[in-house]
Design a protein around this nucleic acid. Structure first.
Length: 714
DNA sequence: AGGCAAGGGGTTTTT
DNA sequence: CCCCTTGCCT
């Protein structure tokens, strides 16, 4: 149909119509790639008669997948419910749910999240008598994830890490498999294993997926790349969309080189370049282009927009971090008052989650509705994780991980010692904790054994009731029977927590509507899978509120007005990236991603002083600010050239007043000081609240509390 | 068993 | 500043 190409430019139409063979679309920020992807799918289905289930589209988040399905659905007026539009992880879970028994796992496998994986690693480290102070479980966990798909990679690590990995990886995998658990990485690794080892399964999917589309290709990791290669059958109809300038997930194994690899591994790759930006005004775009240009390892491309120049990019430097937050809040209020921009058109982006707090406080203070994406993700809350553990235990009583999580939650007088002993015993006897409880020769006292048996009986009761009750009722039953609900009454946050837990009910209802199967086990497994694979973005609600989130979470989104805050060297870019060219380039791409989220107006802000890790810090401006052509900037606040003439002060005074200046004359490196006892001195360095000061002889070098009243700046 | 306080250590991004 | 561990006390 004609309207399939309506409103598309030449390059976009080309991207939609070039359906056969490998195609690589390089799509700059805001170049309408989502549009291209949805139109391409619609074109395949509607114009070319491709069955809906023959298309596999990979997106970066579940939310993006849902949106894509919805758009295709409304374009064609068909149901897209069972289309294969999903993230890599969801796709893998769907495939594994079908075939995982070939790999020796049970069909009802559960997916554990990162926190759980870290905990498990920690437990294993303890078992192996490795000091968790020497190896951080978190750190080791990410290494384990890195080598999982390719055990030979362990050789490349130095000692003692190599030995740790050699010992921990097999143990960790054994634990997961024994408990019928898979982690995020397993979803990919096991699917690859399945497809590589089972020709019939591989050919089945290769035949099914006649057309494969992959979004955000620059952020695929090596396993995901391998998966794509396995799935692309003889037809070679694979369409990738990416932009190396927006690759921001290297820490998670994303490999930009996959873009080059793609061109080598597939023959006759047709390149398509989408350079017209439909999102931002030229001032914003040029500012962003200026920043990204400093990256050496990239192919130069220049986005252009026909949206006009628009406003200049505003850079505001505040005195303190609170001033900065007050400025942002004030500015937002002004927008809301003077323009037709809604709160939901505005986003505040930062490098690290911890930055959000100050802004949150300021928004509360100024009555600005806001929502924070990600911070304490719903599904990572304790109460949710507890109930999920109960639900998992109900489905599989031999899930030791869930068992130990809730055996004493709420308190049942089963302490750490008891659990530890039980675990060791179970380990020796090669059985689950659930089974070990009934053993005659456990090294446990009578009281402990009785309490454990009562818990075991509780799990049995839950399992039985799951068969008969409606899922919603079952949840209520569980909360009552386990005593969890009762315990919440004594919790300060109990009411909210109970509400959170009961939200699961609506997920049950939804799942029931989506899945024809009414078997509770199947439904519950599906809900638990959704919970495990839910991403931060997926939980965004679209109420009329300013959105606060990390730059990473902003990927793929756009807002009329965007603030990028805390632009200080050391914070963004992060100090740990400063001495690595590679990391710096990734930071810069992150900045680029952030800037290109803005449609109409971009604010860049920072503060001279910031409270960080409990200390006052003074950091210079982020170097990214210097990488922007000054003619595109409108400078306000402390750096404003005319700042000292109050009449021309662009920013409301109250933004500056609404703060407590904690130390107007904080001592810095290079300052000359006078000490009551030691006389004149020169500050050579400042570390937290301490300063190293060189005094005249005979006193010499001293480290002193910099704010002490004995010291004064001269 | 469990609660509480003190102390130490680390601070990024997340499917 | 916050999280986790540890050790002491009940």
């Amino acid at each position: 149909m004609k309207e399939m190409f309506e409103g598309l430019n030449k390059a976009q139409i080309n991207a939609v119509r070039t359906t056969e063979g490998p195609v690589m679309a390089i799509a700059g920020a805001g170049s309408g790639k989502t549009r291209v992807l949805t139109r391409r799918m619609a074109h395949l289905i509607f114009n070319l008669g491709v069955p809906r289930q023959s298309i596999l589209a990979i997106t970066f988040t579940n939310k993006a997948a849902e949106e894509m399905k919805m758009r295709v659905g409304s374009l064609l007026n068909v149901s897209t419910r069972d289309m294969w539009v999903s993230t890599f992880h969801s796709m893998c879970a769907r495939i594994l749910r079908e075939h995982i028994e070939r790999l020796g796992y049970n069909q009802n496998f559960q997916i554990i999240d990162d926190d759980d994986a870290t905990q498990l690693i920690k437990l294993i480290l303890r078992r192996l008598n490795i000091d968790v102070k020497l190896v951080k479980p978190r750190m080791l966990k990410s290494l384990v994830m890195n080598v999982k798909g390719d055990l030979d990679a362990i050789d490349a690590y130095e000692e003692p890490i190599q030995t740790y990995l050699r010992n921990v990886v097999p143990e960790y995998q054994r634990h997961l498999k024994a408990n019928n658990l898979v982690d995020f990485e397993d979803l990919l690794v096991l699917t690859i294993e399945l497809l590589e080892q089972h020709k019939t399964v591989r050919e089945y999917y290769q035949n099914q997926f006649q057309y494969i589309l992959v979004d955000e290709f620059q952020d695929t990791n090596n396993l995901q790349y391998r998966l794509i290669r396995l799935l692309v059958g003889k037809h070679q109809n694979v369409f990738i969309v990416g932009d190396e300038d927006q690759s921001i997930y290297a820490f998670r194994g994303a490999n930009i080189e996959n873009i080059q690899r793609f061109q080598q591994d597939f023959t006759n790759v047709k390149p398509i370049l989408l350079e017209q930006n439909y999102r931002s005004t030229n001032n914003i775009l040029n500012a962003a282009n200026g920043v990204i240009k400093s990256n050496k390892t990239r192919i130069d491309k220049t986005l252009f927009s026909t949206r006009g120049d628009g406003d200049k990019v505003t850079f505001f430097k505040a005195y303190t971090y609170r001033d900065e937050a007050a400025y942002v809040a004030e500015t937002i209020k002004e927008y809301a008052r003077k323009t037709d921009i809604d709160f939901s058109d505005i986003a505040v982006l930062y490098r690290a989650n911890s930055t959000s707090r100050t802004f949150e406080e300021s928004f509360i203070h100024k009555n600005i509705p806001y929502q924070i994406v990600g911070n304490t993700a719903f599904f990572r809350r304790k109460e949710i994780k507890d109930v999920v553990a109960y639900l998992r235990l109900t489905l599989n009583p031999h899930d030791d991980y869930s068992f130990s999580r809730v055996v004493n939650e709420p308190r049942r007088g089963i302490g750490a010692k008891t659990i530890d002993r039980l675990m060791l015993h179970a380990e020796r006897e090669q059985q689950s904790l659930f089974d070990a409880v009934d053993d005659e020769d456990t090294p446990l006292g009578k009281t402990a054994t009785n309490r454990l048996r009562a818990f075991k009986q509780l799990i049995r009761t839950l399992s039985e009731n799951l068969k008969t009750l409606d899922l919603g009722d079952f949840l209520e039953f569980l909360l009552a029977e386990t005593g969890y609900k009762e315990a919440l009454k004594f919790d300060d946050m109990g009411e909210v927590r109970l509400e959170n837990v009961l939200e699961l009910k609506s997920m049950f209802v939804e799942q029931k509507r989506a899945v024809a199967d009414s078997d509770n086990t199947v439904l519950l497994t599906a809900v638990l899978q959704d919970i495990a694979l839910q991403s931060q973005e997926d939980e965004r609600h679209d109420k009329n509120a300013v959105t606060l989130m990390t730059l990473h979470a902003a990927k793929g989104l756009e807002y009329k007005v965007v603030f990028i805050v805390a632009l200080e060297q050391g914070l963004f870019p992060l100090h740990r990236a400063l001495d690595s060219a590679k990391d710096m380039e990734e930071e810069r791409r992150l900045m680029y991603v952030g800037m290109t989220r803005a449609m109409d107006k971009l604010f860049l802000t920072n503060a001279r002083q910031r409270r960080l890790f409990g200390q006052m810090m003074m950091n210079p401006d982020s170097q990214f600010l210097r990488e922007i052509d000054p003619t595109l900037l409108s400078v306000e606040g402390l750096n404003k050239p005319t700042f000292h003439t109050p009449s021309r002060q662009a920013f409301p005074k109250h933004a500056m007043l609404d703060t407590n200046d904690e130390q107007e004359n904080a001592i810095q490196k290079g300052d000359k000081v006078r000490h009551k006892a030691f006389g004149k001195g020169l500050v050579v360095s400042v570390d937290g609240d301490q300063a190293v000061i060189v005094f005249d002889q005979p006193h010499g070098i001293k480290t002193l509390l910099k704010n002490h009243r004995a010291i004064e700046k001269v």
